[in-house]
Each structure stands twice: as C-alpha cells, then as structure tokens.
Simulated assay, not measured.
Amino acid sequence: MKKYDYKVEGDVFYFNYLEMASTVEEAQEQANFVRSQLSKPAISKFLNDNRNITAVAAPEVGAVWGELMGWVSTNVEKNATIAPNTSLKMQLNRLSKTAGTYESVRAFTDVQQALEFVGVPSLELS
C-alpha cells in the first residue's frame, strides 16, 4: 500500500500523508520528494493533509519532518496543514503564532478553510 498521494493544482502542492513513515530512511525519502516538488518555480504553496494520521511518529521520524517543516516555512508563501483533530490543530497554530508565522502557516480541521487559505477552494481531494 502506498503511504502518500499528491497532486498539483495551480501553484499549490497537495501532499496527502496516508500512513506514517516507519523508518528514518522512509521519512527522509518522503521529505526529499516533498522538498523537490516545492522547489519547482511554479509551486508557492503547500497543503499538507494529515487527516489519516492517528499515531505519533517515532522521535527520529518526527525529527525528519520537523526539519522539512523548517525548510518549508522559508520556501513557500503559504503552508496549510489539515490536522486529524482539534487538539493538534490548536497546538500547531500556537507554535505558528509563537514563531510569528501565523499569516503564512496554519493548521485546520475544516478542509474547506484550508483550501481557501491556500487559494484553491475547488480542489478535489482524495
């Protein structure tokens, strides 16, 4: 079974994380793929769909994704995460406010709000 799906709509790269990476190598491969897509000149926004993730990543896997998100925050105009629950959404938004990035980095549980934030309200998600 594949662990992620993706699509590009206009200037938005949509990444749907279907299943948590189980190793650092797997997480690094996925992070490199995301980085390569977001490095394309036509892409300026990132929509990260984590609705399917219910488990907590192993610390070393989380570190790979933490590093990627640091890179993302300086290389895209807008970054929206669709969180699987309100608690995670609130935590991510608190971190974004503390970091001073709330205007460009936000989390949502409402898919339509996330789509509107990145400017593709009619994107069909998987």
Rank of each mutant, 00 (worst) to 15 (best):
E67N: 09
A58C: 07
A63L: 11
I53L: 12
N52Q: 12
E77V: 09
E60C: 03
K78F: 11
M69P: 00
V76G: 03
V64S: 06
A58N: 13
V61N: 08
K78L: 15
P59L: 05
M69K: 10
T54I: 12
T54N: 07
N52H: 15
E67I: 01
N48S: 10
N52D: 10
V76N: 00
G62R: 13
L68K: 09
E60K: 06
N48L: 01
I53A: 01
S73Y: 09
K78C: 06
R51I: 08
V56K: 14
E77D: 15
A63I: 06
N48C: 07
N50G: 06
E60R: 04
N50V: 07
N50E: 13
E77G: 12
E77C: 08
A63E: 13
A63S: 10
G70M: 12
R51C: 01
V76H: 05
V64F: 06
V72C: 10
D49V: 02
S73I: 03
V72Y: 10
A55R: 15
E67T: 12
N50Y: 12
I53S: 00
P59Y: 03
P59Q: 04
A63K: 14
I53N: 00
P59E: 04
P59T: 07
N48M: 02
E67S: 10
R51E: 07
N50C: 14
K78T: 03
K78M: 05
V64C: 07
T74E: 15
T74H: 14
E60L: 05
I53V: 14
W65P: 00
D49Y: 04
P59G: 06
